[in-house]
Design a protein around this nucleic acid. Sequence first.
DNA 1: GCTACATTCTA
DNA 2: AGAATGTAG
Length: 682
Amino acid sequence: MGVPGGGCSVVWFRRDLRVEDNPALAAGMRAGAVVAVFVWAPEEEGHYFPGRVSRWWLKHSLSHLDGSLRSLGTPLLTKRSTDSVSSLLEVIKLTGAAQLFFNHLYDPISLVRDHRVKEVLTAEGVSVRSFNADLLYEPWEMLDQEGQPFTTFSGFWDRCLSMPYDPEAPLLPPKRIFPGDVSRCNPDTLVFEDESEKGSNALLARAWSPGWSNADKALTTFLNGPLIEYSKNRRKADSATTSFLSPHLHFGEVSVRKVFHLVRIKQVLWANEGNKAGEESVNLFLKSIGLREYSRYISFNHPYSHERPLLGHLKYFPWVVDEGYFKAWRQGRTGYPLVDAGMRELWATGWLHDRIRVVVSSFFVKVLQLPWRWGMKYFWDTLLDADLESDALGWQYISGTLPDGREFDRLDNPQDALKEKIEGYKFDPNGEYVRRWLPELARLPTEWIHHPWNAPESVLQAAGIELGSNYPLPIVEIDSAKARLEEALTQMWQLEGASQTAIENGMEEGLGDSSESIPIAFPPDTNMEMDTEPIRNNPPHATIRRYEDQMVPSMTSSFIRVEDEETSVDLRSSGDDNRAEVPSNVNTAEEPRREPHGHTIFQTDRTNDAFPQFNFARVRRNSEDSTAESSSTTRRERDGGVVPVWSPSNSTYSDQYRGEDNGIGTSSSYLARRPQAHQLFN
DNA sequence: GCTACATTCTA
DNA sequence: AGAATGTAG
């Protein structure tokens, strides 16, 4: 029902690269002619410039979208920019548009940027409206009985599933779009990969097909196939039984509401058939969708959750700042087969099964005790479905820095693999996964495949393995990791207590936000250097620790900064910036397997410092400040354009950091056991 | 049917 | 670690 000649509006595409169930696009069409725009301004992301594979995906997704839009009547106008706001303004001026529509994003940078978009454009007389296209429910709709945000996933998710109103039903794709006049706009050609990356990226197309209609196909395939056995198969590290939707979801190629809706239909169907396993599968799958929702929720309520633990005491954990460990982990040379296989797969394919993500990340945090943000950043750089909010949630969960995450002092990883029943044998009982990604261990019998260090010399010899040269000995022994972890925890509590005391004694700023502790730098460049010398076992050097508070760059309210303000540990081995070579010693040739993907927990994020403070109380509905149609809104005002209000004056990053650490209150038994450790903030 | 022990899962 | 669920006897 678009009216040519009516107003022209700009629809700003971001991570909502689809034409179906796209509220901003639908609103633009309702308003008349549409100018569809995508602005590529990666500098605004600061540290989180998208990684190679992620950019590869984006490139294809955009061209797919452009094709769809063209066939509907209008092209996708692309702009290269370092400042989204001014680019939008320019497009609006050149097209004579009177309105701007876009869909919400919830990462910290977008929250600030989008708020500014509204401010600036509204001041210019442009009517701006934004919509929910990414979530079942907006974060500000989800509050507990007391009207407070939830602090645990289960509380949150239970509520999502029992809301008095359903998530909006998906919108149908448009039949035709009336094009706005873009003749005065100069589209920019966007460059997403450099020459050196093309080769590595070529492999990706074999396994993945970006683009909204492909996302839709993936969804259908999953619904009609693997979903029903999702529960049963979820442990298998190697099988293609996940939905493979995560990258599609990250870029908004498919609407979660549609996913939710269709999955529920299946659920009802199976419930009627009494298919218990099917129902269970649906619940599990939905839960993973819920985690994604929750990651946005957390990000919205705690915009610094990608860089600071939600549980404040972790600030005092003495992380091991060891480049050697970090590198060994990246290269898949830790000496723990399952971990190494995972890291090789990640590098080679940009994807990992969720279970393996858990294995490699908890190894990273608990055994290596490296700062979790480093791991998160590496995931950001290498994962096809890298997603700031999800990855932050995943790493915080693993790190034990969430009220309902795994407890920090629990070390439950590969070692147990030793005692059978361990991760290794649990996720990869026959060692197939390890053999695929660690060809050097391929000939080792299953009995030893997950713990070659225990294998008799004769067996190793027969398998052609020489530990320490062929394949590394464990970089850290589990036992020493355990001891080290305990020591570190003791230290952490001591420091915590000391700072607590300092505060009580009036030394307000007793804690060392930036004072006494040296912030841990952002991870050094994380390039794969497969050809370097074999990792030595048990590095001789003493362990260096730094107290957390991995401060990262800051984003001023005005925007993105790009410089680092963290003291860099400076260990770079910069010259070798060979981002992505697929490790040559990996069995990539294998069967044309599909790389999986799943919903995962993980993803990454960025940093900032002057942190925006979102004030729930101030949230208001857009209907008040913008266009018509507010009145026509139905009950939940679907597109209601509710927008978070950011009030810079409210508080600054450091204020809140000091004051209350922002985190989520502590409530876990973990903390209960350490009474001296804080009480909730709030 | 019930207790005692074992296994599984936890966002 | 602790809850929950499952199994053997």
